[in-house]
Design a protein around this nucleic acid. Structure first.
Length: 348
DNA sequence: AACCATCCCAACCGCAAATCC
DNA sequence: GGGATTTGCGGTTGGGATGGT
């Protein structure tokens, strides 16, 4: 049984011979593929167009990366799979040079088993209850890294993806708030974080975690605070980002198709700090950045560096786009008022 | 050496979405 | 607008490779 594109032709199936590969490569590199259904005829191949397309995409494209997956790639696959599930094509977009088929095969033949060996359900990435005790023991002794936080710190009951946002607000349920913030001098205020939707978030939200840091990364700016090290930085990128998926750093929430990864308030434990690399933007987009960085001492005096306007009474205005893993883009605006060097109020 | 089981991965299949006409 | 065709995706399969007995 052939496909629509080739039902009237006798087509070869099965593995591709080097000669066939050569014909296909030669044809596509000189003519481009155009309509796939016409490729086999033009290229002199007795294959169906679908088979040609698959062969090119999965094997012959010059930009493909061959060889085994690196640990970093494996980590990305697991992280993204936890959020997107078996959306191999989406996952593969985070791995330059890898195909959905390759990622899928790697998952099925390798990662799945690793997760199961760690007592994790490969579908949900949650700890399988019967494994919890043994897994904890293993972890303590062998320092095995478990990728899955048992629950997301954010959850959301969302049904708004269209223009009717005024009728039913999108409500984010934040995790139980820590009672105080140990740095003691900085606080954040967050209201209606996304301008395209109505969200309600507690207007004041404080964290106790001494390693608290939070990051907003977007098209025009990155603002990050690491309260533990009394460091703050603002990066302003001058190049627009059209498609630069943000990989969430292990936590976030997921509604139907939206991932909120690094935009938000995100407590994390000290051991995770190494993993909390800023979301990767494409290299070429990192090229043009103005970075303003300030160090604060214990009394919040700026020790050095810093944005020229960062002083008590100053304010910042920043617009940025969030680029989510499903290619959704969302524009946000942010306003920061430095009422004092220890009171930074952020409005979204 | 022969047989068998398992693994791995390239390729296929069916379906749905997108595009064409 | 709607049927036909093409494209893209995820699940599945088949057969070669590998390892064990």
């Amino acid at each position: 049984m052939g496909h629509h594109c080739c039902s009237k032709q006798k087509v070869k199936r099965g593995l591709w011979s080097p000669e066939e590969d050569e014909k296909l490569v030669k044809y596509i590199t000189t003519h481009g593929h155009g309509c796939w259904s016409s490729v086999p005829k033009q290229a002199g191949l007795q294959r169906c167009g679908k088979s040609c397309r698959l062969r090119w995409i999965n094997y012959l494209r010059p930009e493909l990366k061959r060889g085994s997956f690196s640990e970093e790639e494996e980590r990305i696959i697991i992280d993204v799979h936890r959020i997107l599930g078996n959306r191999w094509a989406q996952i593969a977009k985070h791995l330059p040079g890898r195909t959905d088929n390759e990622v899928k095969n790697f998952w099925n033949s390798c990662i799945k088993k690793k997760l199961m060996a760690q007592g994790l359900d490969p579908k949900t990435h949650n700890l399988i209850p019967s494994h919890q005790i043994t897994n904890r023991n293993n972890n303590a002794s062998n320092n095995i890294h478990i990728y899955q936080e048992p629950t997301s710190i954010f959850s959301v009951n969302s049904h708004i993806r269209d223009g009717s946002m005024n009728t039913s607000p999108l409500v984010i349920n934040l995790p139980p708030p820590p009672t105080s913030f140990s740095y003691g001098t900085a606080s954040t205020q967050i209201h209606t974080p996304l301008i395209h939707e109505t969200m309600t978030i507690p207007p004041s939200y404080e964290y106790q975690n001494p390693n608290l840091a939070w990051t907003v990364k977007g098209q025009n700016s990155q603002v990050s605070f690491d309260f533990a090290s009394h460091r703050s930085s603002i990066e302003i990128e001058s190049t627009p980002i059209t498609s630069s998926p943000i990989i969430p750093s292990g936590v976030g929430f997921l509604d139907e198709n939206l991932v909120w990864g690094t935009c938000g308030v995100e407590p994390f434990e000290a051991p995770r700090q190494e993993e909390m690399q800023p979301p990767v933007l494409h290299q070429e987009k990192k090229a043009q950045q103005d970075v303003y960085e300030a160090d604060f001492d214990e009394t919040n005096e700026v020790k050095g560096g810093g944005h020229p306007d960062m002083h008590t009474g100053s304010s910042f205005n920043s617009n940025f786009d969030l680029d989510f893993m499903d290619s959704t883009m969302m524009s946000c605006g942010m306003y920061c008022n430095v009422s004092s060097m220890d009171q930074l109020a952020w409005d979204f």
